[in-house]
Amino acid sequence: GATAVSEWTERKTADGKTYYYNNRTLESTWEKPQELK
């Protein structure tokens, strides 16, 4: 079946920190989402 992984995108802030952005829920998080573990 379909997985939720594609909803999350790994992004970088202007100062180079990595965060994760969810295209479906429009939420962002510093922690790696469960779906990516």
Rank of each mutant, 00 (worst) to 15 (best):
residue 13 T to L: 04
residue 19 Y to E: 06
residue 22 N to L: 00
residue 17 K to R: 15
residue 19 Y to G: 01
residue 2 A to F: 10
residue 18 T to H: 04
residue 11 R to M: 15
residue 22 N to G: 00
residue 12 K to P: 02
residue 29 T to V: 14
residue 34 Q to I: 13
residue 34 Q to V: 13
residue 32 K to W: 05
residue 6 S to V: 09
residue 25 T to E: 01
residue 18 T to F: 07
residue 16 G to D: 04
residue 11 R to G: 07
residue 34 Q to G: 12
residue 15 D to Q: 07
residue 9 T to V: 15
residue 6 S to M: 10
residue 35 E to F: 06
residue 7 E to V: 04
residue 14 A to V: 10
residue 16 G to M: 02
residue 18 T to Y: 06
residue 9 T to A: 08
residue 2 A to D: 13
residue 10 E to M: 05
residue 35 E to T: 05
residue 36 L to G: 08
residue 5 V to K: 12
residue 36 L to D: 08
residue 3 T to N: 12
residue 15 D to E: 10
residue 27 E to V: 08
residue 26 L to Q: 15
residue 12 K to S: 09
residue 23 N to M: 14
residue 3 T to H: 13
residue 35 E to I: 05
residue 8 W to F: 02
residue 28 S to E: 11
residue 10 E to L: 03
residue 15 D to M: 05
residue 36 L to M: 11
residue 25 T to W: 01
residue 1 G to A: 14
residue 27 E to Y: 03
residue 35 E to H: 07
residue 36 L to A: 08
residue 23 N to Q: 10
residue 14 A to T: 08
residue 28 S to G: 06
residue 14 A to G: 08
residue 28 S to L: 14
residue 13 T to W: 03
residue 12 K to H: 11
residue 33 P to R: 02
residue 18 T to P: 05
residue 23 N to I: 15
residue 16 G to Q: 03
residue 12 K to A: 06
residue 1 G to Q: 12
residue 33 P to D: 02
residue 22 N to Q: 01
residue 25 T to Q: 01
residue 29 T to H: 06
residue 13 T to P: 00
residue 31 E to T: 09
residue 6 S to F: 09
residue 30 W to Y: 10
residue 20 Y to L: 00
residue 7 E to L: 03
residue 35 E to L: 07
residue 20 Y to F: 07
residue 2 A to G: 14
residue 18 T to G: 03
residue 2 A to V: 12
residue 21 Y to G: 01
residue 34 Q to T: 11
residue 27 E to W: 02
residue 37 K to A: 14
residue 35 E to A: 09
residue 4 A to P: 14
residue 19 Y to A: 01
residue 14 A to N: 08
residue 18 T to W: 05
residue 37 K to R: 11
residue 12 K to I: 13
residue 15 D to V: 04
residue 12 K to D: 03
residue 23 N to K: 10
residue 35 E to W: 05
residue 12 K to R: 10
residue 30 W to P: 05
residue 18 T to N: 06
residue 37 K to P: 10
residue 5 V to Y: 10
residue 13 T to A: 07
residue 2 A to P: 13
residue 21 Y to V: 08
residue 6 S to E: 14
residue 30 W to F: 14
residue 19 Y to I: 05
residue 6 S to A: 11
residue 22 N to E: 01
residue 10 E to T: 05
residue 11 R to Q: 09
residue 1 G to Y: 09
residue 4 A to T: 13
residue 9 T to R: 09
residue 4 A to I: 14
residue 20 Y to R: 00
residue 3 T to Q: 13
residue 15 D to L: 06
residue 31 E to L: 08
residue 23 N to F: 08
residue 32 K to I: 11
residue 22 N to Y: 01
residue 6 S to T: 11
residue 33 P to S: 02
residue 12 K to Q: 12
residue 23 N to L: 15
residue 36 L to V: 08
residue 21 Y to F: 15
residue 24 R to I: 15
residue 17 K to S: 07
residue 10 E to Q: 04
residue 25 T to A: 01
residue 35 E to D: 11
residue 20 Y to E: 01
residue 8 W to A: 01
residue 12 K to N: 07
residue 28 S to D: 03
residue 1 G to W: 09
residue 16 G to K: 02
residue 8 W to S: 00
residue 20 Y to H: 00
residue 11 R to L: 15
residue 7 E to S: 06
residue 14 A to M: 09
residue 30 W to Q: 05
residue 35 E to Q: 08
residue 21 Y to E: 07
residue 18 T to A: 05
residue 10 E to R: 03
residue 10 E to V: 07
residue 1 G to I: 13
residue 16 G to P: 00
residue 6 S to H: 12
residue 34 Q to D: 15
residue 37 K to T: 14
residue 14 A to I: 11
residue 17 K to I: 09
residue 29 T to G: 02
residue 26 L to V: 03
residue 2 A to C: 15
residue 10 E to F: 02
residue 15 D to N: 08
residue 29 T to Q: 13
residue 14 A to P: 14
residue 29 T to D: 03
residue 1 G to L: 13
residue 8 W to P: 00
residue 29 T to N: 04
residue 17 K to Q: 09
residue 1 G to N: 14
residue 31 E to H: 09
residue 9 T to W: 05
residue 24 R to L: 13
residue 6 S to W: 07
residue 10 E to W: 03
residue 25 T to V: 01
residue 4 A to N: 11
residue 27 E to H: 04
residue 36 L to F: 12
residue 17 K to Y: 09
residue 36 L to K: 06
residue 14 A to Y: 06
residue 24 R to N: 09
residue 15 D to R: 04
residue 14 A to F: 07
residue 9 T to N: 07
residue 24 R to T: 10
residue 11 R to W: 06
residue 7 E to G: 08
residue 26 L to G: 15
residue 7 E to N: 08
residue 15 D to W: 06
residue 17 K to F: 07
residue 7 E to Q: 06
residue 24 R to D: 06
residue 34 Q to C: 14
residue 18 T to R: 06
residue 35 E to Y: 07
residue 18 T to S: 08
residue 16 G to N: 05
residue 2 A to K: 14
residue 25 T to G: 01
residue 26 L to I: 03
residue 13 T to Q: 04
residue 34 Q to M: 13
residue 16 G to A: 02
residue 13 T to V: 02
residue 30 W to S: 07
residue 3 T to G: 13
residue 21 Y to N: 01
residue 32 K to V: 13
residue 32 K to M: 13
residue 11 R to T: 06
residue 32 K to H: 05
residue 20 Y to N: 00
residue 2 A to L: 12
residue 10 E to P: 06
residue 5 V to E: 15
residue 23 N to C: 15
residue 34 Q to E: 15
residue 7 E to D: 15
residue 25 T to L: 03
residue 27 E to M: 06
residue 17 K to L: 10
residue 23 N to T: 15
residue 13 T to H: 03
residue 3 T to D: 12
residue 18 T to C: 09
residue 12 K to M: 12
residue 34 Q to S: 10
residue 31 E to Y: 07
residue 6 S to D: 11
residue 11 R to P: 00
residue 22 N to D: 03
residue 37 K to Q: 15
residue 3 T to P: 11
residue 13 T to I: 01
residue 16 G to I: 00
residue 31 E to G: 04
residue 3 T to E: 12
residue 32 K to A: 07
residue 6 S to I: 10
residue 33 P to E: 02
residue 30 W to H: 05
residue 2 A to S: 14
residue 19 Y to P: 01
residue 21 Y to R: 03
residue 3 T to R: 11
residue 5 V to W: 11
residue 29 T to I: 07
residue 28 S to Y: 12
residue 5 V to L: 14
residue 7 E to C: 10
residue 31 E to F: 10
residue 19 Y to W: 05
residue 28 S to F: 12
residue 15 D to T: 07
residue 15 D to K: 04
residue 17 K to T: 09
residue 25 T to S: 04
residue 31 E to I: 12
residue 29 T to K: 08
residue 32 K to N: 06
residue 37 K to L: 15
residue 17 K to H: 10
residue 8 W to K: 00
residue 12 K to E: 08
residue 33 P to Q: 02
residue 8 W to Y: 02
residue 23 N to S: 15
residue 27 E to Q: 11
residue 14 A to S: 11
residue 16 G to S: 03
residue 34 Q to F: 11
residue 20 Y to M: 00
residue 9 T to S: 11
residue 28 S to P: 03
residue 25 T to M: 01
residue 28 S to T: 15
residue 22 N to M: 00
residue 32 K to S: 05
residue 6 S to P: 14
residue 18 T to I: 15
residue 14 A to D: 09
residue 25 T to N: 02
residue 32 K to D: 06
residue 2 A to T: 14
residue 9 T to H: 10
residue 37 K to G: 15
residue 15 D to G: 07
residue 32 K to P: 09
residue 36 L to S: 07
residue 8 W to Q: 01
residue 26 L to K: 15
residue 35 E to G: 08
residue 22 N to V: 00
residue 37 K to S: 12
residue 7 E to K: 02
residue 25 T to D: 02
residue 28 S to Q: 11
residue 14 A to H: 12
residue 31 E to R: 06
residue 7 E to A: 06
residue 19 Y to T: 01
residue 4 A to R: 11
residue 13 T to G: 07
residue 24 R to F: 12
residue 36 L to C: 13
residue 1 G to H: 12
residue 26 L to P: 00
residue 19 Y to K: 03
residue 36 L to P: 07
residue 33 P to K: 01
residue 13 T to E: 04
residue 24 R to Y: 12
residue 36 L to T: 08
residue 28 S to W: 15
residue 8 W to N: 01
residue 28 S to V: 15
residue 1 G to M: 12
residue 19 Y to H: 03
residue 13 T to S: 08
residue 37 K to M: 15
residue 30 W to A: 05
residue 30 W to R: 04
residue 33 P to F: 01
residue 20 Y to S: 00
residue 16 G to F: 03
residue 27 E to R: 04
residue 21 Y to L: 04
residue 32 K to L: 09
residue 4 A to V: 15
residue 36 L to R: 06
residue 5 V to C: 12
residue 36 L to E: 08
residue 17 K to V: 08
residue 4 A to Q: 13
residue 8 W to M: 01
residue 28 S to M: 15
